[in-house]
Design a protein around this nucleic acid. Structure first.
Lengths: 384, 384
DNA sequence: TTCATTCATTGAAACGATTTAATCCGAAGA
DNA sequence: TCTTCGGATTAAATCGTTTCAATGAATGAA
């Protein structure tokens, strides 16, 4: 995947690199500028600027001249130069969006939500992919700051970011929001799912279906989501007098290899099966883990959901398409993206009007999505 | 998914919106400018610019003053203002990247490839998601052109773009490349997989495994990939004297609903099964179709691959994780992204030096990836 | 000593917009 | 008739760079 097999030539058909050589003359037709509009309409650049931006002073401009200017602009196909505009007005109409991995199915719906909201506000997102690497994150951070983004949104599932960030922000005071994690202290706004509620939802679902022998695959310790989810599970268990069998509770390792979720879920499930302690349901930390658990179960001849129900967390796109489709606790990822944009927009507006703005920590509600991978306990399974 | 269930309050735990109200004073510490560096080092802005950019004139600058300037810049933490720089030099160090759907698993590896190559070149990608909508594409096109990107890369699987594009480019002559499709005529460079070779690879694999009763789900007619893939299949069939059973060849409908791939593959497979014409293998247009075909087969009690082998096309991430994992013809998506960047970079350099550049159409070689969903024909299945 | 010549550095003019502080002009009030 | 006033427009400064042409200071040759 990393090395391009493009020029290898081996097994490459004869049309593998058809080059149609076409030259292109550099007839650079210089862009039409505001001065051109001014000339054509017989008015000054200042007036043009005022009219086209509908600036406060525009209320003094005669309707006829407005018409004239707008028409000239349209006739010439005038488009303002974004950089020149910025230089004077300090507004770039852009927001930096930094995330950990674009190929992660958890990431893309959030990005979709962010993009959508920004689009509505006529803002351009500057997307940067940190590849889960600290140095890459920091380099990109510099790049977006150099471009004077008006706000910043950071999507991370892992703390590869530190106080550095905080420092650069309080210095330049740019509105910012994090999604899926929080900075310690009240320095940056954040949006997170209510992990504790989600954990409760998951266990409640299995419990209602009659399951009492339940295996758990907990998230890695350093991940911010792991603790609260487990706490929610424990709280619910306690509230209904259900005792968690600690010998059925596994924990994912810390390694952050992209495929570790895959490997981890698979191996832990195999380990669970080898313990020969019966369980009729499995509650996984997230969807990827759950899907891999299903693979392991199926491979071992355990039918899902007939012999073992499996529930995940997140509701990534894959979960709806897998066979069997996965019951899961859904994070409203797209809505979380929208919300983050609202937060920073509020900050931008405040900053524009030289007001202070408030830093808020949002918890959004998760939602149980019931699909094929869970079902009521069967006596055959429970006896077995 | 579309409507944010955030404020609904229903079923929302008490901590569902914890607002920590923290004010932030607007102590805007004005950014350090080139003039500041000049003042500190006791030299002029011109010299500072020349030194910091290592401009041609820099070879005349005394080493001691270079040191002085670099030191002052570091001491002040000077970062050049990207917009101001552009205004003068016309260089934005950014490339527009327009794609059809960020949530599409086909899209993200390409974007990863693009991003990675641009990062190495210290360019910033301006990502825009067209959501498969023509008007959105056009609006974003305007936005990136307004920002004076130095080049453009368009990832599309569907012709929601037209001559409009071409016109705007020949006018401003910005280097451009398309990935996964081509513009008619020799106006824009392109990168595509060798679909014909891929089709051949797929059928060849099934044929070698001994399959002779093979069902096909062809791509929608308007999709540019459909024709060549089918042609490759036909050519291979002809070359080995294998006759394609037309009554086992289905075609996906045209609709471009995001989920249509899913629905289509599922329904066509069910239809195939109802025809009661035996087949021991199924060659699907792409991975999503293949995965849904597997669902339909499984649902109908047909075991994959024991009773029916299934092969896809693309090798999206999901294919490796599904159960059974999918045999497929891999497109080197990430490498295609890299290649597209190389192409436009060449154009940028040429344009910079006022040279002409060549427009090329690249075909990259696909690769057969054998996984669990195909196996040699069994006598039980073939007799049946 | 004087005049080229090269070396080091800089003044000042862009780049294309926005914005402040005028200016111009006609009408109303004295 | 002369101010005065406010509606309509604009000149000019500014934003932070880059870059070209110009300047000043050495050096070496005549």
């Amino acid at each position: 995947m990393k090395s391009a097999p493009l020029q290898s030539g081996k097994d490459m058909p004869d049309d593998a690199a058809t080059n149609t050589i076409v030259k292109r003359s550099s007839s650079k037709s210089d862009a039409v500028t505001m001065r051109d509009v001014a000339n054509l309409s017989g008015l000054s650049p200042a007036t043009v600027s005022i009219v086209l931006n509908n600036a406060p002073l525009a209320r003094y401009i005669a309707p006829t001249t407005k018409k004239k200017i707008e028409e000239s602009a349209r006739k010439l196909g005038y488009r303002p130069n974004a950089m020149a505009r910025f230089l004077r007005s300090k507004r770039t109409n852009s927001v930096g969006v930094m995330f950990f991995d674009i190929t992660d199915p958890f990431c893309t719906p959030i990005l979709r939500g962010i993009e959508n909201s920004l689009y509505q506000a006529s803002y351009v997102p500057i997307f940067t992919d940190a590849h889960n690497q600290r140095n890459r994150f920091e380099r990109y951070l510099e790049m977006v700051l150099d471009r004077h983004v008006e706000a910043l949104i950071v999507v991370a599932n892992w703390l590869f970011v530190d106080i550095h960030l905080l420092a650069d922000f309080s210095k330049r005071n740019i509105p910012a929001a994090t999604i899926g994690w929080e900075l310690p202290g009240d320095t940056v706004s954040s949006v997170m799912v209510d992990n504790e509620g989600g954990g409760r939802l998951a266990l409640e679902h299995l419990h209602k279906l009659g399951h009492r022998k339940i295996a758990f695959i907990r998230g890695p310790k350093t991940l911010i989501d792991s603790g609260p989810r487990w706490k929610g599970i424990q709280k619910f268990a306690h509230s209904v007098g259900f005792e968690i069998d600690q010998s059925l509770a596994m924990q994912l390792p810390e390694e952050f290899d992209p495929n570790s979720g895959f490997e981890g879920g698979f191996r832990l499930t195999e380990e669970l099966l080898q313990r020969r302690r019966k369980f009729t349901a499995l509650l996984a930390f997230d969807d990827l883990t759950a899907l891999c658990a299903i693979r392991a179960l199926t491979k071992a001849g355990v039918k899902v959901p007939e012999q073992c129900s499996v529930i995940g967390f997140d509701d990534v796109a894959m979960s709806a398409l897998s066979a069997p489709s996965l019951t899961t606790v859904r994070q409203p990822l797209e809505a979380m993206g929208n919300l983050a944009v609202n937060i920073v927009m509020e900050g931008i507006n405040a900053s524009q009007e030289k007001r202070d703005w408030t830093i808020t920590h949002h918890r959004v509600a998760p939602e149980l999505v019931i699909r094929e991978s869970t079902c009521a306990i069967s006596f055959a399974a429970s006896d077995d």
